[in-house]
């Protein structure tokens, strides 16, 4: 990084470059894989709506961009490369493993003491639904699956709709990396 920033590049160039570079790297792989998957659907079944399919690909790419952005944000907040790596994996572990478990545990607890019957109340669902992994799931279910199941699809609360999930999902792609940059801009290297 010292070497890079000795050249006439700004710190913003560095952050944008990292985000774009890494995102492109995995987006290429992802798009190739999804193209094959798409072809396999078209061949036996004969139809695939290209518009919806492209939207799905875009959403999935964005999903990757979110985690790339989080990883970059974490690496900008720490000097240590090990901490940065641990932080990035930690964020993924938090959202993928711990988050779901915590939600299940809470639901189980509340049900055991008799406060709820089955699903969590809508406000709690909203909180748990802020996680990018859940958001992705909600978006896929909401937009691409006809008659999708699950607590979010079945709830009628407006703030649990996929239309609100979309801007929240977009915010995940922007906010962490922007926050990391603002901190990084003013730190001594």
């Amino acid at each position: 990084m010292t070497l890079l920033l000795s050249l006439p590049y700004s710190r913003r160039d560095l952050v944008v470059g990292k985000l774009v570079g890494r995102s492109l790297a995995f987006a290429t792989t992802l798009v190739a894989a999804l193209a094959v998957a798409g072809a396999l659907v078209v061949y036996p079944f004969g139809s695939l709506s290209p518009g919806w399919y492209l939207a799905f690909v875009a959403l999935t790419v964005l999903y990757g961009v979110i985690f790339t952005g989080i990883a970059i944000a974490v690496s900008m907040l720490t000097r240590s490369k090990h901490l940065a790596t641990a932080g990035a994996f930690g964020a993924y572990g938090l959202f993928v493993l711990i988050w779901g478990t915590a939600r299940a545990a809470l639901a189980f607890g509340l049900e055991t003491v008799g406060l709820i019957d089955g699903a969590l109340p809508d406000p709690a669902l909203f909180l748990f639904g802020l996680n990018p992994v859940t958001l992705y799931d909600r978006l896929v279910t909401g937009f691409f699956v006809d008659g999708g199941a699950g607590p979010y699809a079945e709830s009628s609360a407006w703030y649990l709709s996929e239309w609100l999930a979309l801007p929240l999902f977009l915010a995940w792609a922007v906010v962490p990396v922007a926050f990391g940059y603002l901190r990084f801009r003013n730190t001594d290297l």
């Binding site: 010292t2 070497l3 000795s6 050249l7 006439p8 590049y9 700004s10």
Partner: peptide, 16 residues
């Protein structure tokens, strides 16, 4: 800083 750096050639300390 970018304008300043574009006039400089630098061998910095602690690079990798």
């Amino acid at each position: 800083s970018v304008e300043a750096k574009s006039r400089m050639g630098v061998l910095p300390d602690g690079y990798t």
